[in-house]
Amino acid sequence: MEDIIDFRSDTVTQPTAGMLATMMQAKVGDDVYEEDPTVKELEKKLASMFGMEAGLFCPSGTMTNQIAIKCFTQPMDEVICDQTAHVYRYEVGGIAFHSQASVRLLHGERGIITPEMIIPEINEDNIHYPDSSLVVLENTVNKGGGACYTLAQIAPISELCKASGLKLHLDGARLFNALVATGDSAADYGKYFDGISICLSKGLGAPVGSVLLGSAETIRKAIKIRKLFGGGMRQSGFLAAAGIYALDHHVDRLAEDHKHAADLESALLKTDYVHHVMPVETNIVIFKVKAGYTAKGVIAALKEQGILCGATGIDTVRFVTHLGISGEMIARAIKQIGVLQPERI
């Protein structure tokens, strides 16, 4: 049987041989004592890349996001974000649980919000209202089909936040995909954000880990919150080494994932069961099935052909390309997409 083609997420990647070799050679120490040299190298490397003062290595992007939100809010504050935001939809209500903050939801275009949307949602000083204290952006936008913010879009949001006394955090789970797609400079990001979460275990292909970037003061506070959340790791340099390898070897190749996603988009648009496909910018392909079909039915039919993917709604399906997907796999998937006959309802 041919290999399974797994489009469910870019989190399913396996470490490459070169990454595994680098991990096994890592110099390590006790990171809770701040003595792991490889963790320090990773944190310093990413902070320097994005023009930030410091970084903190954590087990997951959910943790880095929730630590940042706790750093930048107080109980009874309010967080402003898009209604599709990962921090709101997919982090188990962590904003309420960890930070005791409420959420003001915006309805951006494919998850992209603008200053004009934010301005009327900033609360005035009134005893009836929570204090608006933080805006969170997501780049790329998962639920938006991998839609990208450019720095030109981010800059006015940052200016508004500074003028309004709000902090600005970036959920950069797939930020390197956005950088490859837009050509923007990573070094410029530090000008605009108080916190940036960088995930290493998606398109970059590391097995575990995210890094929170911020000011030295923010990261000192974040270290204690990480400990509170149970995220203090010991000889985590073995994992950090994978992140360093990914940054050195797996960034430019993200363009290949983007091309594969665009090829899938073209194939899907030619079928008689797809209503439309969200414009593909990076490595995420989300499509809506036509009336008479269901996402569940399409997913089941693809699974029978050895192709795994996931639903984002009752009539929407998501493919995510990654380093575990070869050109040959894309060709096979496109062939099956073209002849697929999903069950109708």
Rank of each mutant, 00 (worst) to 15 (best):
residue 278 M to A: 04
residue 274 V to C: 07
residue 302 L to P: 13
residue 254 L to E: 00
residue 247 L to A: 00
residue 294 T to V: 08
residue 218 T to M: 15
residue 266 S to N: 06
residue 229 F to T: 02
residue 283 N to F: 11
residue 223 I to W: 14
residue 238 F to M: 06
residue 289 V to F: 10
residue 268 L to I: 03
residue 273 Y to W: 09
residue 243 G to N: 05
residue 280 V to L: 02
residue 312 T to I: 05
residue 260 H to T: 01
residue 234 R to M: 09
residue 219 I to R: 14
residue 316 T to Y: 10
residue 235 Q to D: 14
residue 314 I to F: 09
residue 220 R to K: 14
residue 225 I to Y: 12
residue 242 A to R: 09
residue 256 E to P: 00
residue 232 G to W: 07
residue 222 A to W: 10
residue 239 L to M: 09
residue 290 K to A: 15
residue 238 F to V: 04
residue 289 V to T: 02
residue 266 S to G: 03
residue 317 V to N: 01
residue 271 T to P: 04
residue 286 I to R: 01
residue 257 D to C: 13
residue 264 L to K: 05
residue 270 K to I: 00
residue 233 M to F: 05
residue 277 V to L: 08
residue 218 T to G: 10
residue 224 K to E: 08
residue 287 F to R: 01
residue 224 K to R: 14
residue 296 K to W: 11
residue 258 H to D: 00
residue 241 A to M: 04
residue 261 A to M: 04
residue 314 I to A: 15
residue 235 Q to L: 02
residue 291 A to M: 13
residue 240 A to E: 00
residue 233 M to N: 05
residue 233 M to H: 09
residue 238 F to R: 14
residue 217 E to G: 02
residue 288 K to P: 04
residue 225 I to N: 13
residue 229 F to K: 03
residue 222 A to L: 11
residue 228 L to C: 09
residue 296 K to Q: 15
residue 231 G to P: 06
residue 233 M to R: 14
residue 298 V to F: 09
residue 310 G to M: 14
residue 241 A to F: 03
residue 274 V to R: 07
residue 266 S to P: 02
residue 302 L to T: 12
residue 275 H to N: 12
residue 268 L to K: 10
residue 307 I to T: 08
residue 295 A to I: 10
residue 240 A to P: 03
residue 296 K to V: 12
residue 280 V to W: 00
residue 229 F to E: 01
residue 308 L to S: 13
residue 284 I to H: 10
residue 267 A to R: 06
residue 304 E to C: 02
residue 285 V to G: 11
residue 245 Y to E: 11
residue 304 E to R: 12
residue 296 K to H: 15
residue 257 D to R: 05
residue 238 F to I: 09
residue 293 Y to L: 11
residue 270 K to E: 05
residue 236 S to G: 13
residue 301 A to Y: 07
residue 295 A to P: 05
residue 224 K to L: 03
residue 266 S to R: 11
residue 226 R to D: 15
residue 263 D to G: 05
residue 310 G to Q: 15
residue 303 K to W: 05
residue 236 S to Y: 08
residue 292 G to F: 02
residue 290 K to R: 14
residue 311 A to F: 07
residue 232 G to D: 12
residue 249 H to G: 05
residue 313 G to Y: 07
residue 221 K to S: 12
residue 221 K to C: 13
residue 316 T to F: 09
residue 288 K to M: 03
residue 241 A to V: 00
residue 280 V to I: 07
residue 286 I to W: 04
residue 263 D to W: 01
residue 223 I to A: 13
residue 293 Y to G: 07
residue 318 R to D: 03
residue 298 V to D: 00
residue 237 G to V: 00
residue 295 A to K: 13
residue 312 T to L: 14
residue 249 H to K: 01
residue 303 K to Y: 06
residue 222 A to P: 02
residue 248 D to V: 00
residue 314 I to P: 12
residue 250 H to Q: 13
